[in-house]
């Protein structure tokens, strides 16, 4: 599980307008938010001032506002733009949060902990059916072989699965169906949801290697 590789961290639908989504990748907590112009920000989930999670902050469209002292950080740069305790002075330029790279593709939001990985290599059509994510209290290494053998009866087109390694003890299965049939999407979602929940039960009961 490389820090340089792209991993899914959210579904595109997790980022409705003016929301801040709490994600985690390889032990790193992330605050993920879509600005009003559509730009997706993936930041370390801590205000630089006193360490409060930015995922409980307010998405104000072009800035994220911390809940504790109202510090504001700009979309794209994550630079602090305003410190309400000192409204007259401009914040020191060095106050900028840590940002992570981002790609929105196939209905998922992708990121990497280390910068400048190669482009995300997938060969999926642009609008697949995105399954509900399944959070699993077991490491990715235990989930991988279970997914390789995944074959629920009557599932139609096979989903493509990506595993989001949240930390060394847990992961999230994110599945997409590349070319869903024109009708019956709900039944397909239900079928996979039930099968993946069963897979989760198996994964969580298996002792870690």
């Amino acid at each position: 599980m490389s820090a340089h590789a792209w991993h899914p961290i959210a579904a595109a639908r997790d980022l409705p307008p003016r929301h801040v989504f709490h994600a985690k990748l390889l032990g790193q907590e992330l605050a993920v938010w879509r600005a009003d112009d559509g730009f997706i920000n993936v930041w370390e989930n801590r205000c630089l001032h006193r360490g409060v999670r930015l995922s409980i902050g307010l998405n104000e469209g072009q800035e994220l506002k911390c809940q504790y002292h109202g510090w504001r950080y700009a979309s794209r740069t994550a630079g602090c733009t305003y410190i309400p305790a000192h409204p007259e002075g401009a914040p020191a330029r060095r106050i900028a949060n840590r940002i992570f790279p981002v790609i929105e593709r196939h209905g998922l939001i992708w990121s990497a902990l280390e910068t400048s990985p190669d482009d995300l290599q997938t060969s999926l059509p642009p609008d697949p059916l995105v399954l509900r994510e399944i959070a699993i209290d077991a490491p990715a290494a235990i989930v991988e072989p279970l997914l390789a053998a995944y074959d629920p009866p009557g599932h139609g087109p096979r989903p493509i699965f990506f595993i989001q390694p949240t930390d060394s003890e847990s992961c999230v299965i994110r599945g997409v169906v590349p070319e869903p049939p024109p009708t019956g999407a709900l039944a397909l979602l239900r079928l996979h949801d039930a099968a993946l929940c069963a897979l989760r039960d198996v994964a969580e009961q298996r002792p870690a290697a």
């Binding site: 001032h49 360490g51 999670r53 305790a85 000192h86």
Partner: peptide, 22 residues
Amino acid sequence: ILENQFPKRLPLDPRAESPVRA
């Protein structure tokens, strides 16, 4: 607010967080 502060232990190194005059 307190339960969403990280790290939970108070960092004593003056460079660990970003204090202002307030």
